Amino acid sequence: MRHLPAPLRRHLTAIRALAVLTVLLGLLYPLAVTGVARLLAPGGAGGSIVRSGDREVGSAIIGQSFTDAAGAPVATYFQSRPSAAGDGYDPTSTGASNLGPEDVVDTLPVPGAVNEDGEPDEGRLSLLTRVCARSKAVGELEGVSGARPYCTPEGTGAVLKVFPGRAVSVNQACPATPFLTSYRGLPVRCATPGEDHAAGLTVPVRGNAGAPAVPADAVTASGSGLDPHISPAYAALQAPRVARERGIALAEVRRTIAEHTTGRALGFMGEPAVNVLELNLALDNARPR
C-alpha cells in the first residue's frame, strides 16, 4: 500500500470508507432502528396495518377513499378528507398541492385547444374554486348548504378582474351568467377562455354567505395528503346520511363516532380526530351491510 502512487492510495481509501459507511449506515443502522421499533411498537413498525378477519383492509396511518368505480362517494360509508397525493392517498406522491390563499383565478380550458401531449386543454382550477366545488358537492351529499364566502352558487371562485369601464367574472366561462350584474357601477360579464386578464385588478367577492355548514377539512387536503382522520364536526355532518343508508339508529352511529374519536396529544397538542377507516370498519363489523 505504501508503494502505491499517492492518487491511487487516496482512491482506495475512499473506496474503503464508502464500503464501511454503506454497511454501517445503509445496513446495520436501519436494521437496529427497525428492530427497536418492532420491540416498542410492533404495529407501527409494520405500517399499522388494519385487518378485517384475514384481510388487510388498509393502514391506520394512511387515509383512503371510500368511493365506487366512477369515483362517487359510497353513501353507506363516512368519507375521508380530500387528498393531493397523486391520485389520492398515494404514499409515493405524498405532499400538498402547494397552492396558497392567493390562488383564486382559474385558467379556463380553451375549446379545441390541445396541450403539449396532444390532449384536450383542461385548464387549471384555482385553490379557491376547488374548495368551492368540494363544498357544493359535500353539501349536496349531506343535504346541507354548501355555500361559502367567496364562492358562487355554481361552485366556482367568486372573483372579478376589474378594468377601466368593465369587470370580468374570470372563473365563469361564457355563456355563464356572472354571479354579479355590476360592481361599483361597472358592468360584469363572463370570461372568454384564452382571454388575457392579467392586467386587471383581482377582486375576490365575499358575498353574503354566513358561517359554512361544511367543515374546512371536508374541502381541503392535509399537508401530507395522507391524513387518515377527519374532524368530529365532519363526522357529525355525515352521521345522519350513514345512519339512513345503513338503516340503523343515528344514536348508534354517533356512539361509534365517539368511540373512535381520539383527543389531543398529551392533552393539549393538536385537535380531536376520527380515524375514518377504523370508524367504517367498526360499523361494518357491528352491522354487516
Rank of each mutant, 00 (worst) to 15 (best):
R2F: 12
L4N: 03
L8Y: 13
V20F: 04
L25I: 13
L28E: 02
A32Y: 12
T34W: 14
V36P: 00
R38W: 07
R38C: 08
L40Y: 05
A41R: 14
A41N: 15
P42C: 09
G46E: 04
S48F: 13
I49V: 12
V50T: 11
R55V: 09
S59Y: 11
S59T: 12
A60H: 05
I61Q: 04
G63P: 00
S65G: 15
S65I: 00
F66Y: 08
F66D: 00
T67V: 15
T67C: 06
A69L: 14
V74Y: 00
P82E: 01
A85Q: 00
G86M: 09
G88A: 11
G88E: 03
Y89M: 01
D90A: 13
S93D: 11
S93M: 15
T94V: 13
A96L: 01
G100L: 11
E102I: 10
D106P: 03
L108D: 07
G112M: 10
N115G: 14
D117T: 13
E122N: 11
G123S: 06
T129C: 08
V131M: 07
C132H: 01
K136Q: 14
A137F: 04
A137D: 04
V138Y: 01
V138F: 11
L141T: 06
Y150E: 14
C151Y: 01
T152A: 13
G155S: 06
G157T: 02
V162A: 05
F163M: 08
P164D: 04
G165H: 01
R166H: 05
A167C: 09
V168D: 02
V168S: 07
A173L: 12
P178D: 10
F179E: 03
L180K: 00
R184A: 15
P187H: 05
P187I: 03
P187V: 02
R189M: 12
C190I: 04
T192F: 05
E195G: 02
H197D: 15
A199C: 02
V205T: 07
N208S: 14
N208P: 02
A211W: 05
P215K: 11
G223Y: 05
L226R: 07
P228M: 10
H229M: 09
S231E: 10
A236Y: 08
A239F: 04
A239R: 12
R244A: 15
E245F: 05
R246D: 01
G247Y: 12
L250H: 08
T256E: 08
I257P: 11
A258N: 06
A258R: 12
E271C: 03
P272A: 08
V276F: 01
L277C: 13
L277I: 09
E278M: 13
L279D: 06
L281K: 11
D284F: 07
